[in-house]
Write a protein that binds this DNA or RNA. Structure first.
Length: 374
DNA sequence: AAACCTAACAACCGCCACGAG
DNA sequence: TCTCGTGGCGGTTGTTAGGTT
């Protein structure tokens, strides 16, 4: 007897998600946070497998996901990381925080693999191994250096009581604290980290800022942690509008709800640029869904003091959990162990503009044989 | 205009790791 | 230590849009 399926196969819907389903899922996660996927279908009424809900969230609806064309830099990153890590897409995706592993995997399979294959065919002298090996050496050396730096930083963090490092990058702006291993410090910093929440989300540039909120954190759910999903909802509704004209399932229902859908779509479409207002009931219900989305998206700077964090120890666990769940996939801000610290630095190094630039130089060297790839 | 082909991407499936009891 | 539930991950398939014949 094998393990029972994660969900009852009977009555479970498969195939593409409809906007209605997306909205149900999003609103549920907004209310309850991501996690306990098993309960999601039950609590939302979605006729979907819990795993399907999780995948839909992580691969499509999750805040901060960048879609569309991969930049040259991203492609280079993927190629090199793939050479180093193999098909460990999740690991590769951790270096491209705005991309999902699925997205990277698809891009690799549909674009990059062919590019490389073509390149290898046109230039048989270009051996994959040598290509990887030379670069790998550079990476490993840099990794060693970073581990050393990380250890040093850790030592400093342990010796100083105000461990604060600021990471500012071109693609990601994170203000965080150095994680430590001593119990008190660790807990303290963990709590500081957990109290930070996305205060500024710039999807255009993929820029996040995290700000420790003052002590006023309600006992109940914190919808604002879904603040960055406005674009996602807007996007899915755009898809809704498009698909509604051809999706029989939806178009068949296009009767009285069509107008409200249109107006909501307009609203969400413009919501990214301005604060509009409309009286459509459907829209209002969505507005309430989006409310809490945060006012802070207009903030442009990140400010954070140690005081604010230390005075907010009464945070409800749900909030903490919610934020953990929201952020972990993107930035791994909460470091469960000291072992993650070097990784953090490595990530910092990877995304640091200067470092990337420097590193790109080395990439250029190692990619000299494949200039036409890019 | 229709049939066919291909690329792109969303979603599914099965396996595995991990934590709780 | 074992079992079970859950979530993560990678491989694969299915669907659809766009291009070509």
């Amino acid at each position: 007897m094998g393990r029972p399926p994660c969900c009852d196969k009977i009555g479970v819907k498969k195939g593409p998600w409809t906007p209605e389903e997306d909205i149900m899922l999003v609103s549920y996660i907004q209310e309850n946070g991501a996690g306990n996927w098993r309960a999601v279908p039950t609590n939302t009424g979605l006729l979907r497998c819990s795993k399907s809900c999780r995948l839909r969230w992580t691969n499509y609806l999750r805040p901060g996901i960048k879609r569309g064309n991969f930049s040259d830099h991203e492609e280079k990153m993927i190629i090199h990381l793939q050479a180093l890590l193999g098909n460990r897409w999740a690991a590769i995706a951790s270096y491209l925080p705005q991309r999902t592993d699925n997205d990277i995997k698809n891009h690799w399979n549909t674009h990059l693999k062919k590019k490389l294959k073509k390149q290898l065919q046109t230039d048989p002298n270009l051996k994959d191994d040598s290509f990887i090996a030379s670069d790998k050496g550079q990476w490993e050396r840099t990794l060693q250096t970073d581990i050393h730096m990380a250890r040093k930083a850790l030592c400093e963090a342990l010796s100083l009581d105000k461990p604060t490092t600021t990471t500012t990058t071109d693609t990601t702006t994170i203000t965080t604290t150095t994680t430590t291993t001593t119990s008190s410090d660790h807990d303290h910093h963990q709590q500081e980290l957990l109290l930070m929440k996305p205060s500024n989300v710039d999807h255009q540039n993929g820029c996040y800022s995290y700000t420790a909120k003052p002590s006023v954190i309600p006992q109940q759910k914190q919808p604002s942690s879904y603040a960055s999903s406005t674009e996602n909802i807007s996007r899915l509704l755009e898809g809704w509008m498009m698909s509604s004209t051809k999706n029989p399932e939806i178009s068949s229902n296009q009767t009285n709800s069509e107008t409200t859908r249109c107006s909501f779509n307009n609203k969400t479409a413009e919501s990214s640029s301005s604060e509009g207002s409309s009286s459509a009931p459907f829209e209002q219900s969505f507005e309430s869904l989006l409310i809490g989305f945060d006012s802070s998206t207009t903030a442009t700077t990140t400010t954070r003091t140690t005081n604010t964090a230390t005075t907010t120890m009464t945070t409800s666990s749900s909030v903490v959990q919610l934020f953990q769940d929201e952020c972990k996939p993107d930035f791994e801000i909460t470091m469960p162990s000291v072992a993650a610290a070097p990784l953090m630095l490595l990530e910092k190094w990877l995304f640091d503009e200067g470092a990337v630039q420097d590193h790109e130089d080395s990439l250029e060297i190692s990619l000299e044989g494949t200039p036409e790839l890019f």
